[in-house]
């Protein structure tokens, strides 16, 4: 008697698919439905067609938040990868205290971003933060207020975000670096390759899977940034540093729940575009390698 083992495997995926449907597909479909309604969050939703999506493209605050979110991601995602890769290359060498250094660099990533943001606020707050007080005691008065201008506030937010998550990116790169066979380095040394050539032709191609994971997770994380902004600037001054995630939350609880769901779907699309481009790029790189 022939027993098909393949079909059993299919059935084993059912529980996972059921959970995925319950906690992802169903809310997504419901969300798409709600985005087509005027709903304050508690009364009966009224069908509104595509009104919410049309409103999004007319909403100056929302469009400003898209700009802020994209600028944040453009700063944060590349810097995170750069910092993570640099740290991984440094800490891939052997020296005393290496494990402690790795643990210390990774530690910020496991602390709540809200707590982290609040601590950074206490350190960096203009006039009253620890840094300002230390400078003052040294006889230096820091002029200006970084929180008052959108660009400077955004720069600080990017740097704090990079400081927090560089350790996590580093760990993934480190795992990738350690999986590169020593023979490849030995062969390149025998061939007389320079350090730059080894990095270009050995390290980078072998690190492609780690690069892919880091680039994509950092794009997603940076475009959906929330906590660090809430803790450090609250999105201010005005709405200058408000991200789209914060806007969605504020609209959702500001009696515009239907509209906020439409904006959430727009954010989904905004994240999806660079993720698909990156995936295709890395797939073609992997094929070429």
């Amino acid at each position: 008697m022939h027993i098909s083992t393949t079909s059993w495997h299919r059935y084993m995926a059912l529980p996972a698919f059921a959970l995925f449907s319950l906690f992802f597909l169903l809310p997504l479909i419901q969300g798409a439905g709600l985005s087509l309604t005027h709903w304050d969050g508690f009364s009966t939703p009224e069908f509104a067609g595509l009104d919410n999506f049309r409103e999004f493209f007319r909403d100056e605050r929302a469009l400003g938040d898209v700009k802020t979110t994209v600028l944040f991601a453009l700063g944060s995602a590349p810097l995170l990868n750069l910092a993570g890769l640099s740290l991984a290359l440094l800490l891939n060498r052997s020296f005393s205290g290496r494990n402690t250094t790795r643990a210390l660099l990774y530690m910020p990533a496991v602390i709540s971003p809200m707590i982290m943001g609040s601590i950074w606020y206490l350190l960096l707050q203009p006039r009253r933060g620890l840094l300002a007080l230390l400078f003052e005691q040294s006889g230096i008065t820091l002029e200006g207020n970084w929180m008052l201008s959108g660009p400077s506030a955004l720069t600080v937010l990017v740097l704090v975000n990079v400081w927090q998550y560089a350790g996590m990116t580093m760990i993934i790169y480190l795992a990738g670096l350690q999986s590169i066979p020593a023979e490849l380095y030995e062969a390149s040394a025998v061939e007389g390759a320079t350090g730059v050539q080894t990095f270009r032709y050995i390290v980078i191609p072998e690190l492609l899977p780690a690069l892919k994971i880091n680039v994509i997770t950092n794009i997603i994380g940076s475009l959906s940034v929330f906590d660090v902004i809430i803790a450090l600037t609250g999105g201010g001054p005005g709405y200058d540093t408000e991200s789209l995630s914060i806007y969605i939350m504020r609209m959702c609880y500001g009696n515009k729940t239907g509209y906020s769901t439409a904006v959430a779907l727009m954010l989904f699309v905004i994240i999806l575009i660079p993720v698909i481009i990156s995936l295709r790029f890395f797939d073609s790189m992997e094929d070429a390698a």
Partner: peptide
């Protein structure tokens, strides 16, 4: 006042006012 208009939102207008926006 409309419940969708929080003091948090109106305060942001004053942030902008004091910031010279």
């Amino acid at each position: 006042a409309p419940s969708g208009l929080s003091v948090d939102d109106t305060g942001r207008l004053i942030q902008k006012l004091l910031n010279g926006d």
